[in-house]
Amino acid sequence: MSIIQINLTIAQMLDYTMPILFAALCGVLSESAGVVNIGLDGIMRFGAFFGLLGAFFSHSPWIGLLFGIAIGCLVGALHAFITIRWNGDQTVSGVAINVIAVGLMTYLLEYVFSTTGYSPQIQNYFGAQAYRVHLPFLAKIPLLGAFSNLSFMIWFGFICTVLMHVLLYHTVLGLRIRTCGENPKAATTLGINVFRIRWFAVIVGAALAGIGGATLSISSFSGFSDSMPNGVGFIGLAAMIFGKWTPFGALGAALLFGTGQIVQSIIAVTGIAPKLAPGLTLILPYVLTLAVLAGFVGKSIAPAADGLPYYKEQR
């Protein structure tokens, strides 16, 4: 396996990682504030379709990215409206978003492009050479060479992780968000508006999931397929838990799971094992997550008030 092959494999792995990472960051932010978002798989599906829609009609992936963010915010606002304004069950609301996403995106795909299964391919996407971030000085260095020619979205994912860490652990707002997730009663006592903080966290988180969906359709691939996101949102959910509800933990978990996704192709290239059942590598994220949750490998604990609607006068 030559250096070039290794570099290509790393770059490919990062392509798989980023959608998982964005989904995981959505979960981290939303659940830090105490709102479970099972619907992030559905939000990714929205983001993937609308991201492609924007990029297709404007011939610019940047517009596509904006579309992904906008639709993410919209669906996030719906989730917030149901779960925060009306204290609806957060899991039920998430299921609703997932199911609507399945039906509505297929409908829109057929309506807008008159095709079934796949949208037309686009030329101007973040994976195209013109839109890649070129760092020629890295190209000669082994391993780091993989980072010399990456899609913008990959760097954006790393940046978002750092920003999220700073937001959550080094700002007042972050402290407030985490308080709302751990003990909303105490937050209210301190004069924090729990509802406003939760609205903020859910909408910004959903925008990240929308970006994750757009990453699938206009960065990792150059088109929308009806099977998207194919459970990536749920892998993101797993990555969030495996990363113990922290941004950098989510990044590590997403990298690990992204590697798991392409192990099959690595094996094929290197010929280590001629034939391994793909199912056995695909279940890796879920098995690891269960192991962590069950405390067989380390221990992962959710924010204390995660998933509970907040009633101001409840004692």
């Binding site: 719906l78 779960t83 069950d89 039920v92 609301s93 299921v95 609703a96 199911v99 609507i100 409908y107």
Partner: peptide, 17 residues
């Protein structure tokens, strides 16, 4: 998949019960 839209929306309204 149109029936999914109906199903999903019904679930959404029940979440908002």
């Amino acid at each position: 998949t149109f029936s999914d839209i109906i199903e999903g929306m019904a679930v959404g309204f029940i979440a908002m019960q």
